[in-house]
Design a protein around this nucleic acid. Structure first.
Lengths: 143, 143
DNA sequence: CATAAAAAGGATAAAAATGTCTTTTAATCT
DNA sequence: AGATTAAAAGACATTTTTATCCTTTTTATG
């Protein structure tokens, strides 16, 4: 449902949400170990998000990645869409092309409700929602 | 969440559930077009299921794959476990190793409920449940 | 202005998933 | 018994995903 890349990206953004702002930019070097993602790979993903204006970044000394106030209003789906593409997330559980609620396959009926909810969570949850009331990194990355 | 292979396998088994029994075995050749899965690949998947006694088969003339009465009591999870392995399905949404309901990451709390339901559907739904009252292939494979 | 810091970008590599082909084995039918 | 049929098995090919490396560009700072 979610690729590893999307998971990685979400973890990276969560770390930024907790630790960064315009005045405190963060280098990939300081993130990757906490979220257990290979350094170069995480860099690629964050660059991709930055290029699509899901997160922010500046180069050079004192540079790094960070989340602006606007960035924090992005939803999880914004991240997933950038990394995986919307199609992948929303595709039919059985992979039947034009399958939807109007013309459902059996499995779709069974699990469709759950999957729809999952997608709704992605679409309706902003980064800000996620970190609300949480100041401890441990709460996000228990290991 | 489910690999393509698992989806393919489920589709193949559904076809068998509708059209086969001990006296009417079916060759891969007669299935693959209906369920839109490459012939050789579907063969492999069904062979794997047969090897694990999730479905039945015999070789030679009049041979083919079929579902015994026992086979029909298998759950979707039996299929998915054989093809993908249980780990893959049940893994944390964010891929955090030891993440579970007792020690959850943020996302887990959010989508955990939905995912748990999805897994329960897989575990509690038998092939028999799925085809109950359905005789039309179209209901399963609309395209 | 020189230097160093950090993201951006591109090329490449490794691994996993997906897909194909050929040979072997077992069952059936003449 | 011999010929034919169909799954079983395993080797091989392709594609996608995941991951690394190296160079270039941008930017802050002394």
């Amino acid at each position: 449902m979610l690729s590893n890349s999307s998971k990685y990206a979400i973890k990276g953004v969560l770390y930024l949400a907790l630790n960064s702002d315009e005045d405190h930019k963060i280098m990939v070097r300081d993130i990757f170990e906490v979220v257990h993602v290979p350094e170069a790979y995480l860099a690629k993903l964050l660059q991709e998000l930055s290029r699509h204006n899901i997160i922010s970044s500046t180069r050079g000394p004192k540079g790094g990645f960070y989340l602006s106030a606007e960035d924090r209003k992005r939803t999880l789906m914004d991240i997933v869409r950038t990394i995986d593409g919307e199609k992948r997330v929303k595709s039919c559980v059985l992979g039947i092309q034009d399958c939807d609620m109007d013309n459902p396959c059996v499995l779709h009926k069974l699990v469709g409700a759950n999957k729809s909810k999952f997608i709704k969570v992605l679409e309706n949850t902003t980064i800000l929602d996620l970190i609300e009331g949480k100041q401890e990194i441990k709460q996000f990355f228990p290991f």
